[in-house]
Simulated scan of single mutants.
Amino acid sequence: MADSLEDKSVGIVLAPRGSEEVEFTEPKSAVEDAGGSVDVLGIETGEVETVNGDLDPAGSYEIEKSFDEVTVEDYDGLVVPGGTVGADTLRGDDTAVEFVQDFFETEKPLAVICHGPWTLVEADVVDGRELTSYHSLETDIRNAGGNWVDEEVVVDEGLVTSRNPDDLEAFCDKVVEEIEEGEHEDRQTDDV
């Protein structure tokens, strides 16, 4: 597995503030440990602060590229961490939502954890999909047409979702596996 993602490029999204640190750092490390390269993406470039448990300050990280500077074609996979404030900020930003929606339509692996599926709901891509999230998003996902299940990791045609930081080991394993597999041609939105 050390080089299973050699020549693969992955974008990992950070919000301007409030992304859950381990949901960013662990998938990033998993991709890099598997030989992939990672770009940290966000609404705008610059330093951002992450959190632990939504409330406690964690680390400071650099957003290397804004959504306006890249295209979905630049990446073989995309990861969207959670964090209540971070996920809420991302779902309220048109460029973030459009990037996630466009990425979903490429049929490339898209991995989202915890509160991150709020962005999927806002991007209108959960209808007919089976996914999981932090338990408080269950109603949002069901109202958007998704089939919410309570499992540590769910994969639906390359869409990888997990509930919370306790699921990170399974989530990271599936992130690497799905990016290694590549595009999932059966994944389409109802309006595509």
Rank of each mutant, 00 (worst) to 15 (best):
V192G: 15
A123W: 11
S66F: 11
S60N: 13
E20N: 07
V22E: 11
V72K: 02
W118K: 00
E107H: 04
G36R: 13
D156A: 09
G11L: 02
E157N: 12
E177L: 07
G77Y: 09
D93P: 05
Y134F: 13
T89F: 00
V79Q: 01
E105T: 00
L55Y: 10
G11E: 00
T45R: 13
D56C: 08
E157T: 05
V22I: 12
D191E: 15
E169A: 11
I179R: 00
V112I: 05
V192Y: 14
L137S: 09
D54I: 01
G35C: 07
P165Q: 10
D76I: 04
E6A: 15
G53Q: 06
G83A: 05
P57F: 03
T95E: 08
S29T: 14
S37N: 09
E26V: 12
E138S: 13
E6G: 08
D124W: 13
V175S: 03
G42V: 00
E183D: 11
D76C: 03
N147M: 07
I113N: 01
P109L: 03
P27M: 12
V126A: 14
E44H: 15
T189H: 12
G92R: 01
V154R: 10
A96E: 01
V85Y: 09
M1Q: 13
Y61S: 14
E157K: 10
E122K: 14
V160F: 13
V10N: 09
F99C: 02
D7G: 14
F104T: 00
V80L: 14
L120R: 01
V175A: 01
L131R: 06
S37K: 11
V38R: 07
V125W: 05
G92V: 01
G92L: 04
D93K: 03
E169G: 13
S29I: 12
S29H: 15
V153Y: 10
D33M: 05
M1A: 15
V154H: 08
W118A: 00
D93H: 12
I141N: 12
R142G: 10
H135F: 15
E21G: 02
E157D: 15
